[in-house]
Nucleic acid binder design. Sequence first.
DNA 1: GTCTATATCATGATAGAC
DNA 2: GTCTATCATGATATAGAC
Lengths: 225, 225
Amino acid sequence: MAEVRNTDTRERILDVAERLFMAHGYDGTSMRQITGEAGVNLAAVNYHFGSKESLIQEVFRRRLDWLNEERMRVLDRLEAEAGGQPVKPSLIVDAFFGTLLRMAEDDARGGMTFLRLLGRTLTEPSEFIRAFLAHEYKVVMDRFKEALFRALPDVPKAEIVWRFHFMLGATSYAIAGTDALRLVTDWQIEEEDSVDRLDRLVPRLMSFLIGGLRAPLPQFDQSGR
Amino acid sequence: MAEVRNTDTRERILDVAERLFMAHGYDGTSMRQITGEAGVNLAAVNYHFGSKESLIQEVFRRRLDWLNEERMRVLDRLEAEAGGQPVKPSLIVDAFFGTLLRMAEDDARGGMTFLRLLGRTLTEPSEFIRAFLAHEYKVVMDRFKEALFRALPDVPKAEIVWRFHFMLGATSYAIAGTDALRLVTDWQIEEEDSVDRLDRLVPRLMSFLIGGLRAPLPQFDQSGR
DNA sequence: GTCTATATCATGATAGAC
DNA sequence: GTCTATCATGATATAGAC
């Protein structure tokens, strides 16, 4: 479980840091824990990364670079196939969230550990991490928002942005969750087992997201302003 | 903004702790910050609450006791009005999530500050806090799940539990967000201003949640087990 | 109940030998 | 690149006077 895959010191630190930040949060993880579990010297983090802040940024960059490029590639392909017509909303949603979720099956790209770290961090209070993620995400977010605007010309843009945000939340929580899910809902679903859990999470979440995105528009109370 | 409403030392500590835990997280907030901003002595927290862990538990208990009782009262009333028939899903969702969101307008019950704290904490890694919240929430969660099972007899229970979980995520993120929203989406929605933001968030989120809850069921890939 | 002073410990970071 | 040793700081918690 806690096996060491990577012999390179730098990569080993990143692997362990990713797992510990996921499990205990940024503030809750010390450099001594990281270097201890990685089997490297305490000074190695500062030598290789400069600081704890730079370390977690590198933890994210290592995964997000590929993820966001892959999202762009998928959307490029969808738009090429559509040949000038708007891409179907469900395909756009899958390109953004499906691509993310399918990372969980790819241990070489961080797998479930990175997904849970990302899900938790998006609501975490450390300001510099959120600022960093916002910067890393900006280009791809803008691109996908534009695609959704074209795909849903009858829906006000403000509504689309909000619903994008709600979809992010549902997804973050779903991937951050696992044990939080069990805690909060205390479920015992009969036929569920951990093996096919992820196979089923993706279509489940996708159905929910599309349902929310395509829901009837809200009726605002006329009493205000 | 940072005005002190409460002259009672104990309450003043709780107010400040609520705000600082929201802004900087549990690990990121020190007792020195709390007592400093509250204008009380450093030893006061340990005198009144025993420890930092007990303090944050009391921060939550103070708000959640009322919230969960209110949710139960609303559901009681809905079920009485339905007279044996299942309650409409949208009403159940509003009883759970609407009651929560309307706390934001009630500064005496923590308002937006508490909501954002709650939203962030639900994905935060501190284990003892999640365990505490799971315990505090268990009764009301079970009650609402049962109501949804009755309201949606044709939907598999596993699906309902998952979708409840997704709804929790979308809501947590929506209330935790505000500035995170602005960071991630970098929006400039024209007619939006802060005054009616909350008035409109509730119907917006409700439409999304109901749309997700009532979405067509997912088609699982038959290739797996 | 409130204060000062302090005990005890863990943290991030670095200097300098090898 | 890796190590030991250490610094400076800030953390939670408590003892004991008032």
